Amino acid sequence: MCRTGGFREEIGEEIRLSLRDPPAERADSRPQAGPWGAPAPEPPDQPPPRAADVSGHKWRRLSSSAFFVLILLVVGARAYKDLSRPEAWAYWKDLYFSPGMTSSLIAEADPDGSGHTRPALAIRGAIGAATASWFRDRLGEAHLVAGDAVLLSSPGGDLNQALIMGEIIRSRGLVTAVGVTDPSGHIRPSYCASACVLVYAGGRIRIGIGGSMLGVHRFVTLAPAQDPVAETQRTAGMVLNYMTRMGVSSSVVEAMSATTNVRWLGAGEAVAMNLVTDPVARP
């Protein structure tokens, strides 16, 4: 009995000690390395970096930075060279700063005098180096659909931009007419000359408003060319191909090639060339 009681006292003393004093082994919380419970070995001390390694790392960083700066300089120089060209500046100016054309949306236009009104986008001014992009944006804002009209009033301008504008008009199934609107919203006669005629030709239906005029002349290139004659022939072939696809007679290209000054086509002549497909009386 006394032996048993002493044993219980010893156990109680051990329990009290465990509650009061944390075990010393908790101070070392390193994971055991093996099945025998041996502690993981301490990692070896890392030697301090050598001066050669530090200088090599700095050299690699400097080389990378220098290469990046060199790339920026090359790209910047190329961009400056491209943007400093007159045609590049003309493009940005026409697109963002001072567009050559203006536009207005007519909710109910009657260009053919049929009494059937339709939305129309009236554009006027010179066709500039970025007018095709400008024109596409204006069409998007106007939400025109096939059968709606584009009303033109322009002395002409950039040939390539005019070709693109005509292609856009044809792809959307729009109608073209030459005229302007007065303050009351009525359509009045106007004129469309030079490159504007190419835009007009893009119409699925080309309305000829009485009193409006279509003027043609020979197209010339303003950019330097090694062979101006060959360049003129190439331009004439491009215009002929375009007009043929639009359903216009080749005689209009012959009329263009015959003069350097603007030649105003008569109403009957424009109809005979199939340039005007829907002639109407003076509004």
Rank of each mutant, 00 (worst) to 15 (best):
I15H: 02
M256Q: 11
F7T: 03
F67N: 04
M243Q: 06
R3Q: 15
G215Y: 05
Q226H: 09
R124A: 15
W92I: 06
A66S: 12
E9Y: 04
E25A: 15
M213A: 11
S194Y: 02
G125Y: 10
P35F: 11
F97Y: 07
D182R: 08
V75C: 13
I71H: 08
F7N: 07
G6P: 00
V239M: 07
D112M: 09
A109M: 01
D94N: 09
V69F: 10
R8M: 06
A129R: 05
A33F: 10
A51Q: 03
L83M: 14
L139D: 01
F67V: 11
Q161S: 12
G202A: 11
S29W: 11
R124I: 02
A126N: 07
L73W: 02
F219A: 13
E254G: 05
E167Y: 07
R218Q: 15
N160H: 06
R245P: 00
T221Q: 15
T117V: 15
E231Q: 06
Y91I: 09
P44A: 12
I127C: 06
M238T: 14
V276W: 03
R170M: 08
D28Y: 09
L159E: 04
S153F: 00
G237W: 03
S55C: 11
F7H: 05
L144E: 07
F67Y: 04
A281M: 10
V216M: 09
G202D: 03
G179H: 12
G210D: 00
R26H: 13
D137R: 03
F67R: 12
R78C: 05
P31N: 03
R30Y: 05
A142Y: 05
E167M: 10
W36S: 13
D158V: 01
D112N: 15
A193G: 00
I168E: 15
E13S: 07
T176M: 12
G208T: 05
R170A: 12
A193T: 07
M256V: 10
A236G: 07
E269L: 06
N160R: 10
E14I: 14
Q233R: 15
Q46G: 07
D158C: 00
A195H: 05
G173H: 03
S103P: 01
G268F: 02
D227Y: 07
G147V: 08
V216E: 06
V75N: 10
Q233M: 12
T244W: 10
L152H: 01
A120L: 14
S212Q: 02
G203C: 11
P31T: 04
A66D: 01
V69A: 14
I209D: 00
A51S: 10
R8N: 00
R3D: 11
S18R: 03
G37S: 12
V75M: 12
A109I: 00
R8I: 06
S171E: 09
A120I: 07
G100R: 01
D112Y: 13
P48Q: 12
S212A: 13
I127E: 04
W89A: 05
D53K: 06
S65L: 15
G166W: 09
G215W: 05
M213K: 14
I127S: 04
A126G: 03
M273L: 10
D94H: 02
E42T: 15
I169K: 06
V145H: 12
Q161R: 10
R78F: 02
R60W: 10
I187K: 08
L95H: 02
H57A: 13
